[in-house]
């Protein structure tokens, strides 16, 4: 990993504003299972890279790109192939 990337990466929490366009609940609390290694944890605990153009959220254990999000014009796209599943807690 380039030194610049290491110094500029953020917590997945930093991408929660962007992802709030897609998720109705607080994005940083969505639980994800990494397709690379099976690690299970909240989106807020992933590592966020390249916030300027959108974001790549990587697994802190194996570096798999679990989620990629980007906006182009009026479109926000989400690439989720790095996640086995996502789950949220329903509050009553």
């Amino acid at each position: 990993m380039a030194e610049h990337e290491r110094d500029t990466r953020l917590d997945g929490n930093a991408a929660a504003g962007l992802l709030s366009t897609v998720f109705r609940c607080e994005p940083s609390e969505v639980m994800l299972i990494c397709a690379g290694c099976g690690a299970d944890g909240p989106m807020g605990a992933l590592l966020a890279y390249g916030m300027e153009m959108g974001a790549v959220l990587r697994c802190p254990v194996c570096d798999t790109a679990v989620l990629r999000a980007g906006s182009a014009g009026a479109m926000l796209w989400l690439d989720v192939r790095g996640a086995v599943s996502m789950r949220v807690t329903i509050e009553h």
Partner: peptide
């Protein structure tokens, strides 16, 4: 601005 954001930290 938009927010508040984040339920993790």
């Amino acid at each position: 601005l938009r927010g508040p954001i984040g339920g993790y930290f």
